[in-house]
Nucleic acid binder design. Sequence first.
DNA 1: GAAACACTGCGCACCTTGTCCAGCAACGGA
DNA 2: TCCGTTGCTGGACAAGGTGCGCAGTGTTTC
Lengths: 157, 157
Amino acid sequence: MDDLDGRLIDLFADDPRVGVLEASRRLGVARGTVQARLDKLAATGVITGWGPDLSPEALGYPVTAFLTLEIRQETSSGGHDAVAQHLEQIPEVLEAHTITGAGDLWVRVVARSNADLQRVIDGVLDDARIVRSSTVIALATQVPYRVRPLARVGLSE
Amino acid sequence: MDDLDGRLIDLFADDPRVGVLEASRRLGVARGTVQARLDKLAATGVITGWGPDLSPEALGYPVTAFLTLEIRQETSSGGHDAVAQHLEQIPEVLEAHTITGAGDLWVRVVARSNADLQRVIDGVLDDARIVRSSTVIALATQVPYRVRPLARVGLSE
DNA sequence: GAAACACTGCGCACCTTGTCCAGCAACGGA
DNA sequence: TCCGTTGCTGGACAAGGTGCGCAGTGTTTC
């Protein structure tokens, strides 16, 4: 990651349809350089993919909620991994992480409406290993998900 | 969104480097159809972009934490939007949402280490409008962020 | 100093893209 | 039932990008 990498990422983030050749022109470097940098960024895992970004809202899921689940502690019953497997089956579960706090799991879900959210939550809680849960609903997005600013800061590695 | 759209998204998500022509071959439809579908998906907002996906870990920020901030209620002092503006300035803030609960804000941050997390949190809390905060650290990712399963379910709209 | 590395500038064959077009089938309103 | 609309097909074209390789050059490292 150096300044050129940062500008390269910014360029492709702003205008993904530009090709390698056009990017090299805009950045004032040789085409081979751009290709090499992109290859390296992909190889080091900085760029994990180029897939289309999907909007849950546009897909008909405008409601976002965050669930905190408390998982039963017994190691014999499977625990987090088993619950994770359960969550993976639910399309509305967009994300799940274990967090600090004994046996706690944080889950991001979406739903078609506030009423539909109840159905989704019921689906999530349909697991005997879940002891308790709490829900907060996201009302508005103040800062949309982004990673780019990090790339500008870190001229490291 | 119909079945073809779903397969199209899956195809590009699995293998983003395929072009329109190759996609049309794999899906067994005409090239123009693929182009038209992609245009429509972009126009309806389902596909919001094609930018490179960046990994905070690979950028040197392996620690993720979730902060819940309580914002002072006075409308005169600006409130959420002012705090949001403050958060936007911090590169380590990847995401922020207002949530249910009076004056609460949910923030996702990353840091270079657990020690570095303290610096990041201090930066976030450096705003007089923030009354209180709590932090949980993400220990592991059980379900990585994903939207694709939604596209398979919803054959609506 | 020599090797390793990164970038440049170039060329080539191949292929994709953007953009047209005409033909055809399905759907819904008059 | 007829017609307009919409979506898909299959084809065409020019323009331009991609993948690949190569020689030359400057810079860093041992």
